[in-house]
Design a protein around this nucleic acid. Sequence first.
DNA 1: CTGTTAGCGCGTTCAG
DNA 2: CTGAACGCGCTAACAG
Lengths: 341, 341
Amino acid sequence: MTSQDGSGRTRTVTLRDVAQLAGVSVATASKALNGRADVRPETRRRVEEVAGRLAFTPNTLAKAMLAGQTGTVGLLTNDLVGRFSLPILMGAEDASGAGRMSVFLCDARGDAIRERYHLRALLGRRVDGIIVVGSETDPRPSLGHHVPVPVVYAYAPSDDPTDASVVPDNVRAGTLAVEHLLLTGHQRIAHISGDVTYAAAQDRARGADAALQAAGLQRVGPVRFGSWTESWGRLAAGVVLDGDPVDAILCGSDQIARGVLDTLRDRGVDVPGDVAVMGFDNWEAMVSGSRPSLTTVDMRFEAMGRRAAELLFAAIEGRPSSGIEAIEPRVVVRGSTVAGA
Amino acid sequence: MTSQDGSGRTRTVTLRDVAQLAGVSVATASKALNGRADVRPETRRRVEEVAGRLAFTPNTLAKAMLAGQTGTVGLLTNDLVGRFSLPILMGAEDASGAGRMSVFLCDARGDAIRERYHLRALLGRRVDGIIVVGSETDPRPSLGHHVPVPVVYAYAPSDDPTDASVVPDNVRAGTLAVEHLLLTGHQRIAHISGDVTYAAAQDRARGADAALQAAGLQRVGPVRFGSWTESWGRLAAGVVLDGDPVDAILCGSDQIARGVLDTLRDRGVDVPGDVAVMGFDNWEAMVSGSRPSLTTVDMRFEAMGRRAAELLFAAIEGRPSSGIEAIEPRVVVRGSTVAGA
DNA sequence: CTGTTAGCGCGTTCAG
DNA sequence: CTGAACGCGCTAACAG
């Protein structure tokens, strides 16, 4: 892509260089390389040969200026360190990479100022669209409608219902979890969850209760909110075991479930024989390392990212959407609810 | 950034629009907005006012074409899903965001074809430099020297010593781990590690053995290579306990250490009273959830990413470097080697 | 102080 | 079939 000019400095190869060396005009070279008609086959071959020899790489920026489309999208995340952003990001990158879209990654770290700054940078680079990834499932402020390109919100929905958002369906996840527990013969179900201020915790609990109610049952004890940690799981499990008898414990996250499994093991409670355990998230490192391996609800973050990218591309192509779209979660059955699974 | 033209279509605001509305030429508008001298204060103010009102966002691409620098760097990763890429990516994003660099993210997933494809895309977009993140610490093939922009390799070094690479210092990490164990009064140290084919496993073992030797001691039993999983840790711990007595077990990763802790707990072995345990990686979810919390060696991936970005920026500015630079790891002391810590 | 001119690299008319 | 000319949005150099 570079060559030496007289001064010895390396300069990037341009279409003109190719044309010159092939003995044609830039226009002809352009047509030849873009596979357009109206070029004599032999001419085309010669141009292609020269382009290859010089390692000519067309300047996408120059093309973008003409076309008005840059073939880039911005990914504005607020929680790069978290477990949620990454799969979403992968899904988006995946959906984009399939075509010839490139992804600008920005981490605002939950700071509105930084977010604004990155937004300006993205718009300055004329991205064709933006995906905003939140750090919680609670609604977040919209970027507003004066943003000149389509925006899709993932994980955290926009607080403006006319924006397009893709979110995990935590209510449904709670329902699916309980339905699985019921189906595997458990009726006395306790619920240990995480931080009470998280919409995800509330939604899952609501979905779970709804499923219990539909079966004519009731949760054993209150939903025990605490924190999204193993130690809370260990602690709360003790409290649950000391209360009314249970045959299953639904946990707000895989981490909490790990803690619960620890306490059950310490107390000699057989899992899943005496008590079944379920988590949420399908966090590989957590579910596969536990004893027994952990049944969980996969929120399908990667599918969420892919879907967000799809909606964004559609909007870019003039087919915008609006409203909140929920991704259907999926139960992953392992040994903590079904012996030997 | 957009406005309505006659047809009702929205069009992006250009410098010309601003100039026109402010009643000056584009050149003057440009100078005014870029804070250059030779503009009457009042004129400048008027231009700024108009720019603000139209939400004018300068087209970075157009600037880049003139300047020959795009203010973008490519991040070519091969293991986005892994725990290593992300912190590196964060460090790089961090170091970049400080200035006005934007990051193109590409995931090649260890596929050479995809890597080549993404490389072309990045070069087409005229990135000023590229960071290549490997998925293992084993050397990887160089992109070669015909790439027209600086390249820095992170995590996995390039196999070409004239390239610039930043890697974790696994040998040193092994040494630091053993030194910590010795310092806390342990002398009979066994070593359980991960996949024998990983350079990281070999390097850590070598560093550990060197430290033992320096203290006139010897490892208890062979290095027990297996896999980077909790279940291997549980299994191997049993084997170790059934062999010669030990007062410390060094584990090749935090995950393995978690498994080891499980077995010790099952067997009623007190940690760290009877046997101390150490891991590598400082993986938050692993170390904080364990009982007791896990002493570990932090490889400082984020610092690695930051350093890689620094080297890249230096190279972009004409101060290239070459060779492999190792990041000094850091022991993080917790309860599994020092009671109550 | 301000406006005019000349490109940056490319694709796209439209004459030859 | 081929090539000259124009423009995308902006800045640097000069002319007024």
